[in-house]
Design a protein around this nucleic acid. Sequence first.
DNA 1: ATGTCC
Length: 480
Amino acid sequence: MTEKLIRKDENTIEVPIGYKAGMRVPGLIYLNAQLEKFLEPQAVAQVANVSTLPGIVGYSLAMPDIHTGYGFPIGGVAAFDLNEGIISPGGVGYDINCGVRLLRSNLTKQEVLPHIKDLVAAIYANVPSGVGSKGKIKLTPDEQKNVVLKGALWALEQGMGSDSDLEKTESEGMMTGVDETSISEKAYERGRNQMGTLGSGNHFIEIQYVSEIFNEKAAQAFGLFEGQVTVMIHTGSRGLGHQVCTDFLPIMERASKKYGIELYDRELACAPFHSQEAERYFSAMKGAANYAWANRQSIMHLVSESFIAALRGSPSSIGLSLVYDVAHNIAKEETHRVGKRDVRLIVHRKGATRAFPAGHPELPDIYRAVGQPVLIPGDMGRASFILIGTQDAMAETYGSTCHGAGRLLSRHGAIKAAKGRQIWKELLDAGVTVTSAGRGTLAEEMPEAYKNINNVISVVDSARISQKVAMLKPIGVVKG
DNA sequence: ATGTCC
């Protein structure tokens, strides 16, 4: 089947119309020859399946960290016309507004290294981790409503953060238009004790340092310098978002039938964007997205307290502040140029990061001259990257780029490969102090379970759908 | 990703 793929240039492969039945537009996968070796036929089939959905515009896109997901591939980007098109929970994923937040500091790697053990322990103690972890923050029903309506602003109102954090958060940490009744009691129940918690799987808090700068002007705008300590927080909407997705899948399946949408895979369940079902899902999705922004804002506060305790420093000497916060599992209404017209689209990014260019009206004043910070985590052993969005991304990918390295081994395969080894010790020997809540998590998440992030970044940088600003290397990790 | 199967 994959022999029907057409290599367009060194960074892109086309999935032609006719690759599978029902395709309305071609697929386009950002991938070089090296990463093509790992391309799963099932993920390609999912790119093709997405292109069968009504109202899809341009291409069914996928980023170089593509792998098989639920219905839509992870690494997938698909934009639909608001009038002709659909919204699909499978195009967002279970972890609604899973995303990444990056903090800068005034500290150097040399200043932090002597305290790294204490620091990792303090963060682990302050931010509950693991499946079903419960936080110190308990939300009353009234507060829950404020969380899903206000997002990061809710956390600020609790004294967790400063006003300037909002402009450094995608969508200012709050999507508007949430009807709080669109979220089920069960979803609220699952979210009640999970504010300020990390979760499990690939979620983490990582202490890093800036190991290399590729773009001085952008690095300066982001407050970054070589040798500086940074903190990356990767988590999402926890049980609340998961339950929202679970709740709406059967509703969307019924809606697909009701509105006569032919599904080439039942996991593509969706509804016309202006239908009652779609409006209800979009509202709940936005509420879950707001929960995730409140969560990352709360965790940032807990991390700040951990630095103060472990380093016995003052807030101003430590100087932890927000660089930016991106969502990589979300659907958003955006304006894009299609042909010669500006049109409103519903852009699904599932394991893909928004990458808006310099000058874009949605960027905050402080970053408008350089472009949106794009935050791409790698794995625990290698590196993570900061990039900026570009005009080419606007023209080709609805302002989107990759979201991570992408798995190489299955979870099971990773556990098998780690048998008899001490992954924590291997990482410590490589200069990374790591603590994990789950026994298996460390094995599932070990560096060799992931593709080399450098290959993925090299594709998006050379295809110019985002441009490298800095590389970050880990020195301490808290895993779920 | 996820009270990793109500």
